[in-house]
Nucleic acid binder design. Structure first.
Lengths: 407, 407
DNA sequence: GGAGTTTGTTTAGGTTCGGCACAAAGTAAG
DNA sequence: CTTACTTTGTGCCGAACCTAAACAAACTCC
């Protein structure tokens, strides 16, 4: 009996109970759905004993605080439950975002709270490695200043990211080559900077959707559709049961080429009237008869126009045209995906704010079922939601298995 | 201490091990992915001891057979593993399908094998209750003749089925009222016929996709997109990680109103050139300049035309037009859903067979990423896949928890 | 201040699964 | 046919994890 086939010899040594529920419990605290130990007990569906052990273990890991002082909480009848909160002195992750305007780095704690951030920086190179090096350098400086433990890094890029390769397929706004290996480049820079933990990369709208689902307007949604436009083109994302629906190779929700205007503008895809070219800031400025400025500022220019000159007939007409196109696109997506909530970002969010009734009416009219027609359409609520989403990406291993991720 | 809050007193009595893996194990045998106990062991990721207990338990439940005779299997080195197979004398489910042509009932065993079926029957009423009564009566007769235990019933209908209400939102081909409570009506008829087990209802294309994923051309696909057209309109379905993606209220993949031809036919939805009116049998007959027959036979008429008169210039031109439109629609869906396999049914399957290269080229050209463009597009392979899918619906509780479902 | 309610804690016990040793059943080679 | 080797099935033990139950603690309400 020398050549043994049994190799799965995972010797576990810890004796505490409540290990398997560790991840779900941390996620509940992380997303604010378990403010007390009593709520944690019911949410996990375990006994008080188990929930107590789980909370104690998470506290021992330095991730959460269990406030067991008498008098810490009160209000209803019975013994007040211990309050649960993210440990503000606990580990952080490095979150980074690259976009047409520039880049930004931040440290994000559990709960999605940004504990340190750089001001927006300007990109000085069109070489992905150099840009990511600058981003990581900023993040490393933040980490040094804070003196906190880092357990991972996440990067948001304005491009579809193919999995499992981790390549950016259309980083057009960055003048990067299509297919740039952003994941590997980012990992490399993170390693070179001596930052610990795994490093991940994702599409900015996907990550924004994830952030909104966990900490913003998407909380509690079962099937959350997110659509946003920043500078050029339109991005989409779907969060199903708390997880990003990335498709089989990370390219799902590439919604830009839905036809929303049969007689519309020609698109580089060969068709015409695509969502991409009909509802982005450039389309808005064009419809309003304004001269577009530099690419990085298209969103700001459009936002200013919408907010300050909405009384102007040409601006209003342009807004209404884009709202109708956007509504048509959203209706198509609602028919295909049947979400229970829709969140809009970037210029789309501004369009929603400008005339919510009109957008909702278009969607209701064009989507087939009254039930679907009444899907709530909301504006995103988080500042820098892509950045927070990048942090979520880095936190995910910890949320999945805190014990394994921290040791 | 009288008013106790702890009420979850689930006293379990069985002593066997391998309970939690019972469902996954049965699913592996059911879908043919665990032909032997050794494979079951590795697929489940448990020890041989546990897998043995699981297999024994499933055999004790009368669901599978474990062939432990020496010499039952051989071929490679080492001790041959016990063969696993569905118990052919085990329980069955009642599967039923209603469509424009008529209806059909069948008994389906584990593994998706149809053990008894009625010939196609003609619908003689436009009252849902009466039709379902006739369907269930046929099924009950099959059950009586077979003398086998029934553990559930499933029904496929040509309509979106809203959840959790179980209402058919657009049963147009059946002349049923929109919003007909098909689930409740079906449950009622099943109960009245004295058939045991829970009863479920689902959309026919959804169920066809489920069947193809488990027993047909979709086996092994991670994200399976299924598109089909029977008589009028187009249906879609998505299977993600082996489960139907139904959206938040069962209405996902309502793909009929994607715009695929900006200058196309007007659609009742108010737009023009929708997939629904551009790629269904009626559109094909119209494009070929043929007079459509009665609604129930549109598919058959189109199929005959495609197969026997493809040399005819008008037929070929019509096929190519529809292929282009279908390709555009599929490309849009591929961009949004990023599936790793596409399966076509009904007339779409015939179009694929007529000119596979053309359809694949259109999809590759119109979908954005080369990677997505190379999505395999296949024809469905199961006879009566909606019927088998209806059976899958009824089997699901057993697959989820065999112990609970059978006792 | 006592009754009632809700939650935390301790203890005991049970279920499930992995590790391990060994037996069983085949193939491969002489 | 025998021996070596490979692979799989089985029985036993213990660890891990959780529930149940009883009790203690901390609040509200009257």
């Amino acid at each position: 009996m020398n050549g043994r086939a049994d190799k799965a010899t995972t010797t576990r040594t810890r004796l505490e109970r409540g290990r398997s529920a560790l991840g779900p419990a941390l996620e509940l605290v992380h997303t604010g759905r378990a403010p007390t130990r009593a709520v944690l007990t019911t949410e996990l569906g375990v006994t008080r004993a188990t929930a107590g052990a789980v909370a104690a273990e998470l506290e021992a890991l330095g991730l959460i605080l269990v406030d067991s002082r008498p008098g810490a909480a009160a209000g209803s009848q019975g013994r007040p439950s211990h309050r649960l909160a993210v440990d503000d002195t606990g580990p952080v992750v490095l979150a980074a975002q690259v976009h047409a305007d520039g880049f930004r780095a931040a440290l994000v704690a559990l709960g999605g709270r940004t504990v340190a951030t750089t001001p927006g920086c300007v990109i000085v190179s069109s070489d992905p490695a150099q840009v990511l090096g600058a981003v990581v350098a900023e993040g490393a400086a933040l980490l040094r200043d804070s003196g906190r433990r880092c357990v991972g890094a996440g990067l948001a890029v304005p491009s579809a990211v193919a999995e499992p390769e981790g390549t950016a397929l259309n980083p057009l706004h960055l003048a990067w080559p299509a297919g740039a290996p952003v994941r590997d480049l980012f990992v490399e820079q993170v390693r070179a900077a001596g930052i610990e933990g795994p490093a991940f990369t994702g599409n900015d709208v996907n990550l924004a959707a994830l952030a909104e689902h966990r900490h913003g307007a998407g909380r509690g949604a079962g099937q959350l559709l997110c659509v946003a436009t920043g500078h050029r083109g339109v991005g989409g994302a779907l969060v199903v049961d708390g997880r990003l629906h990335t498709g089989s190779s990370g390219l799902a929700l590439e919604v830009g080429h839905l036809t929303v205007n049969p007689e519309g503008r020609p698109c580089h895809c060969g068709s015409r009237g695509c969502l991409d070219v009909e509802t982005d800031p450039l389309a808005f400025l064009d419809a309003a008869g304004r001269e577009p400025g530099p690419e990085g500022s298209l969103l700001q220019q459009s936002r200013d126009l919408l907010r300050t000159e909405y009384a102007d007939r040409s601006v209003r007409a342009a807004a209404e045209e884009l709202i109708d196109r956007l509504g048509q696109g959203l209706a198509g997506l609602v028919n295909i995906l049947n979400p229970d909530r829709v969140i809009l970002g970037g210029l789309h969010r501004e369009l929603l704010d400008a005339d919510p009734a009109r957008l909702r009416a278009v969607v209701a009219d064009r989507s087939l079922w009254g039930r679907s027609g009444s899907v709530p359409i909301l504006a995103c609520t988080l500042d820098h939601n892509s950045l927070v989403g990048a942090a979520e990406l880095a936190w995910q291993p910890v949320l999945d298995d805190p014990l394994a991720a921290l040791t």
